[in-house]
């Protein structure tokens, strides 16, 4: 069932997300992080048990540390888990992700975010 519109009887509390005013993701990056893990799982990069074990570990670490000045963010733990699993598998090193983040941050304003031509990373 993929039709976005619910039959009239299912409006209100039982209507699909978004159409009932509920946002599944509080910020767009949460949806991206969610989708990346699911897409990698569906492509066979890892099993869901492997990911959820990593996620549980990430959540437990946050709960143990419980930074007083930091509100709990489920998707922050989710992202940690994804980065950690990809690093453990030798697929994407965290340092590579951070280098790319630096590169994206330093791109000129208004520059298309796709990394489709090369710049000198400049150490």
């Amino acid at each position: 069932m993929t039709a976005p519109a619910a039959p009239p009887a299912l409006q209100g509390a039982s209507a699909p997300p978004r159409s009932n005013g509920e946002l599944v993701f509080a910020e767009p990056w949460e949806g991206r992080a969610f989708g990346l893990a699911l897409a990698l799982h569906e492509a066979g990069t890892f099993t869901w048990k492997e990911f959820s074990t990593e996620l549980a570990g990430s959540i437990a670490r946050w709960e143990r540390a419980h930074p007083a000045d930091e509100e709990y963010s489920y998707y922050r733990c989710w992202l940690e888990a994804l980065e950690s699993l990809l690093e453990d598998r030798g697929i994407v090193d965290r340092a590579v992700t951070l280098d790319r983040a630096v590169h994206l941050r330093e791109r000129p304003a208004g520059h298309d975010h796709r990394h489709d031509h090369h710049h000198d990373h400049g150490g």
């Binding site: 910020e27 990056w29 991206r32 980065e83 697929i91 590579v96 951070l98 790319r100 983040a101 994206l104």
Partner: peptide, 29 residues
């Protein structure tokens, strides 16, 4: 880095390497 920046960087790398199809990703979300 904010989580948004880290996520964008990761997505950039994964799509560049062909590990994630941007169309599939958009559809899942």
């Amino acid at each position: 880095f904010t989580p948004a920046m880290r996520t964008e960087a990761l997505e950039d790398i994964l799509t560049e390497r062909g590990l994630v199809d941007p169309k599939v990703l958009a559809g899942l979300i």
